[in-house]
């Protein structure tokens, strides 16, 4: 027996959490990409200090649960409230939203850094040599040859990482934020109809993932025109 009215009501209630989920995802993905670019550059720089720092960052953030990172930032740093107030940073660490965004950014940044590094390392040496042979400068080589080839190599893994960020935003609900999962948990606790609420919330997440997969496919056809299959006539 399916209670259409309850499902509709749940969907309506859950939709209110969509902006938060999407906002956290978009923010963390964008900021994380910048951070990952810096970390990957550090790892590939050949400078021991930068390499070591980037390595440590990636090791720590990939080796610990996101939930621990989130609690450490939100609850753990709360212990140092007077110091943070003195530094003028308290407004930031007081807000669960900023703490969630920071934790998600740091976390995805570490994973994405490895994806970028893998993409760059996969660039065929011959392509780089050929670029040098035509007299390309380091910057030009990076911009015209290395990054485009690395990007198409890394794209599938990056698409998966973006989907993990979508799923990871659900952890924001553990520090009082009402994203999709936060609302879902509230609905379940009120109604005790776990399965129906799960189905509705799951549908939202799957829809978001589907949209991301579509975007990745689009990016693939733009980045790798030579691999594009001819359209069937």
């Amino acid at each position: 027996m399916i209670d259409i009215a309850f499902l509709a009501e749940s969907l309506r209630a859950l939709a209110a959490g969509l902006p938060l989920t999407l906002g956290l995802t978009g923010g963390a993905v964008a900021l994380g990409l910048v951070l990952a670019g810096l970390a990957a550059a550090g790892r590939l720089s050949g400078i021991a200090v930068l390499d070591g720092l980037a390595r440590l960052y990636v090791f720590v953030f990939r080796g610990t649960p996101l939930l621990v990172q989130l609690f450490l930032i939100y609850y753990g740093l709360g212990q140092f409230r007077p110091d943070l107030q003195a530094l003028g940073l308290w407004w930031f660490f007081r807000e669960p939203y900023w703490c969630a965004l920071l934790a998600l950014t740091l976390n995805t940044g570490a994973y994405t850094a490895e994806i970028i590094r893998g993409g760059v390392l996969a660039v065929p040496h011959g392509a780089v040599l050929a670029g040098r042979a035509c007299g390309m400068s380091r910057g030009l080589l990076l911009r015209r040859i290395v990054l485009p080839l690395a990007a198409r190599q890394a794209l599938p893994a990056y698409g998966n990482e973006v989907i993990s960020v979508v799923k990871a935003t659900s952890l924001a609900s553990t520090i009082t934020l009402l994203d999709l999962t936060g609302i879902a948990q509230k609905l379940i606790a009120q109604s005790f109809r776990a399965l129906e609420v799960f189905v509705c919330a799951g549908a939202f997440y799957l829809a978001i993932n589907l949209a991301i997969i579509g975007l990745v496919r689009l990016a693939e056809t733009i980045l790798a025109p030579d691999l594009r299959r001819p359209r069937p006539v």
């Binding site: 799923k167 935003t169 952890l171 609900s173 379940i188 606790a189 776990a194 799960f198 799951g202 799957l206």
Partner: peptide
């Protein structure tokens, strides 16, 4: 495989925790 890889793990835990006792 599609559902479980696409839905947040936390949501699955909530489903089993609340749904399981129900």
């Amino acid at each position: 495989t599609t559902l479980l890889r696409g839905v947040p793990d936390l949501l699955v835990i909530y489903l089993l925790y609340f749904g399981g006792s129900a």
